[in-house]
Computed example of a mutant assay.
Amino acid sequence: MRRPLARTLTAVAAAALLVPALASCGSDEPAGLVIYSGRNENLVKPLIEKLEKHLGTNVEVRYGDSAELSAQLLEEGDKTEAGLFLSQDAGALGALSKEQRLAPLPKTTLDKVAPAHRGSAGDWTGVSGRVRVLGYHPGKVPTPPSSVHELVKPEWKGKIGFVPTNASFQAFVTGMRVLEGDDAARTWLKGLKANEPKAYENNLKVLDAVDKGEVSLGLLNHYYWYEQVAEKGADKVTAKIHYLPKGDPGGLVNVAGVGILKGADKKQAEYAQKAVDYLLSADSQKYFAEETKEYPLVAGVKTAEGVPPLETLQPPKIDLGKLDSLKQTLAMLQEVGLV
């Protein structure tokens, strides 16, 4: 399945103007569960349809940008219609957790996912994971860099592709800020800017540019490469990907996750809890692994063929809930002239 284009997060300041549409999976009956989803409809619709059958009630979904929906939920407070928030990004869930807008999840639910992939306050959990990697052209880069910090060296000038408006790139920069501090992150961004990286509309175009040799390296998420290989065949994809070792910030593991909104009525809260558990079921986890090439986060569910198991990677250790400072990241990207 080809992943829909990631939406930019640069409209956070306009979140109050967001008026997303409600999409019903069933009949005109009143919704038993209302979900605000930062994940694209084309991506999760098959799961939502299965969820509706599993719950035995009508499910309505409000689709939009994760950061914008998070901001809207903060504005709505206890008056929100939503019972469940399905986010593309851990930072949007962290923002709600920080303001105590999420209900605690039971230990039996939390224990299905490793602590590194859920909120430290116990009020949200990841449901699928993705890893930042370097895409590279083997004919131009025989040995890929061992750290994202090497990308500011002069030899990479004009040879790097990236998507500065992409949510995952911005989450990676936020992660660098959390791990190494604002000054270090700002210095790295200035070095990247000085190397004149080529900006693309989305990650697929970055991967295509690497594949064609337009750029030598690309910053992207792992699943884009595996989806291209699945679609075209390994012999038709020239580009390779490199997982960064030793806790490098460029190897961030981020998650899509869910949280139950405080203020939901008792019945909707019950449906929301059942929905969380369904998204952590073997059926849903296999969907993420096999259809989108993401990482399943529940033990016992294997990754897609060829995708290295999550436990074999060396990502940076970070509280994903701290990826909530997106506005500061956007301000820094604007300051150095990358957006």
Rank of each mutant, 00 (worst) to 15 (best):
V141A: 01
S325K: 03
P144D: 07
I48N: 09
G233P: 08
L204C: 04
G263V: 07
K79I: 00
S27K: 11
W188Y: 15
P309K: 05
R177A: 03
Y136A: 09
V163K: 07
L279M: 11
V229G: 00
G122Q: 06
Q334E: 15
H242I: 07
Y36L: 01
P138A: 10
L86I: 10
K286F: 12
A31L: 00
D235E: 01
R186C: 02
G26D: 10
K50G: 14
G251E: 14
N221C: 15
L279E: 02
K267D: 08
Q273L: 13
P197V: 03
L244G: 04
I48E: 00
E155H: 00
G139C: 03
G337W: 10
H222K: 15
G129E: 07
G119C: 12
K98A: 15
G257I: 01
L330K: 12
G94F: 12
E76H: 07
G191F: 02
V163L: 10
V148Q: 03
A275C: 10
G64P: 13
S146H: 08
G306A: 03
K266T: 13
G26E: 08
Q285S: 14
E291Y: 09
D182H: 05
L22Y: 05
Y36Q: 11
K140F: 04
E180W: 04
Q88K: 06
K232I: 04
T329Q: 06
Q88S: 12
L320T: 10
L179G: 15
T80A: 01
E81R: 15
A103L: 08
L252C: 09
E227C: 11
V298G: 06
G175E: 14
A331N: 14
A31K: 01
L55G: 12
D211P: 14
E99N: 04
G306R: 13
P245H: 05
R118Y: 03
L207T: 14
D208Q: 06
D89R: 07
V206M: 14
G337I: 02
